[in-house]
Design a protein around this nucleic acid. Structure first.
Lengths: 235, 235
DNA sequence: CTGTATATTGGACTTTGGTCCAATACGAGG
DNA sequence: CCTCGTATTGGACCAAAGTCCAATATACAG
């Protein structure tokens, strides 16, 4: 059982050395690697894990406490994940997880712990943790979890960005246009919408055209899909 | 700390006594209650938990092993969930969970265990368990978990049924109609579809009308939504 | 007060989609 | 062999949607 000391790179074995982190698979001159944020109050654990993670080709930032993390939290320019001790002086790992859920940062969490119990594990997993690893952490377990966490970060970021894009377009609609859009994606005919809103059909056509334009879609099918994505439901 | 012996009903306190299980909220003469399937090799645990669960107004079926469960598995007429010991002679609880994932039964699982560890907990939760409770199980914990599990069962069943409905309608389409539908929900015009398929636009209109009919939708918007649901994506 | 954004409408016209009628071709199964 | 389901097409016609032109009213901000 190897424990956080191996110096030989252990990362994803199916990848060529120059392309370690599977989250970005461009062949190019090595784009800046994904970041792993490591919080642990034990300096020796920090050192050992940081070395391991770096050896797998990731960038690492370490923090001694949840508070320090919250203070100098890095900008979320690139996909990242969090490796986090559960029990720490001050804010616990679980507490930090709760805090982060209130933000809309995307930071998948891997818990590591020396004194975890089952209820704590369940709580963390229910709250969306990627993994929960008892110390001593096996290198392969941690790296596999990091791989998964970063994959999730990339995926969730893409989804969030998509949702934000759509929301910003919806925000550019006038109230009337929004009304019209809502009825259009319910499958109502222009004449029905006109009756519902108490205006003539001609006007609906104008609003409708502007909706298609502002929402940047070319077809009703796309508009329906985008509206679904934005949480505009039929019922 | 109460432990699986309380006789006073503990179920959802916000519900009136006649309406215990929150999964069915019809007022009527008490529809048959949801079933909780209980698997544990320890007779005393079976007895105690069965009594607790019954006292909360659920129907209970007990099994002494995963194998016995698989043999005389009840029909899934009504929403149900599984309360399951992790370690048992023969097939373990985790094994059974894996088996069940291969079927399309909807049976949310609550694990209970006397000798669980963290990796096992993580594995179960990752595999979709509703909860993972160390023995001795507190009454309130178990009942809360059952409530959640049944809620999930009801929800997932509804989703599955919806998906199956849609699939059965798709199955009734002719190959040509399916092709046409796929292009229609991509937002293609009839003339474009006609060109793509090498037939005249008129024919597309016929297929299209039949698609709308067979899929039981009244508008293109509904067709797009239903197709999305059936996993017919744009890209 | 003036200008910009919003909401509304009109006419004229084209394109697209949907419907009702009817008809031909082909392969599988009774 | 005949029938049924599937796929295909045609014409005529109507309904719905989209487009290009232009115009008016109102509210709010600078």
């Amino acid at each position: 059982m190897t424990t956080l000391t191996s110096l030989t790179p252990v990362g994803p074995s199916h990848l060529k050395p120059e392309t370690r982190h599977p989250t970005l698979d461009t062949r190019r001159p090595m784009p800046s690697p994904p970041t792993v944020l490591l919080i642990d109050d034990d300096p020796s654990v920090r050192r050992a894990l940081a070395r391991l993670i770096k050896s797998a080709g990731y960038q690492v930032q370490t923090f001694v406490s949840a508070h320090e993390f919250l203070d100098r939290m890095p900008d979320e320019a690139r996909p990242a994940c969090l490796v986090l001790d559960v029990r720490m002086p001050g804010l616990s790992g679980i507490d930090l997880q709760r805090e982060l859920r209130l933000t809309n940062l995307i930071l998948p969490i891997i818990f590591i712990t020396g004194h975890g119990d089952i209820p704590m594990t369940v709580k963390a997993m229910k709250a969306g943790a990627v993994d929960f690893l008892p110390k001593p952490v096996r290198d392969t377990d941690l790296l596999r979890a990091i791989e998964q966490a970063l994959a999730r970060a990339v995926h969730d970021r893409a989804e969030l960005k998509e949702a934000e894009d759509i929301q910003s377009r919806v925000a550019k609609l006038t109230p009337r246009e929004r009304e019209v859009m809502n009825l259009v994606v319910k499958g109502w005919l222009n004449k029905q919408i006109a009756f519902e809103l108490g205006i003539v059909e001609k006007t609906i056509k104008v609003h409708r055209a502007r909706v298609m334009d502002k929402m940047k879609v070319e077809s009703l099918a796309d508009l329906v899909r985008i509206a679904e994505h934005a949480g505009i439901r039929k019922r």
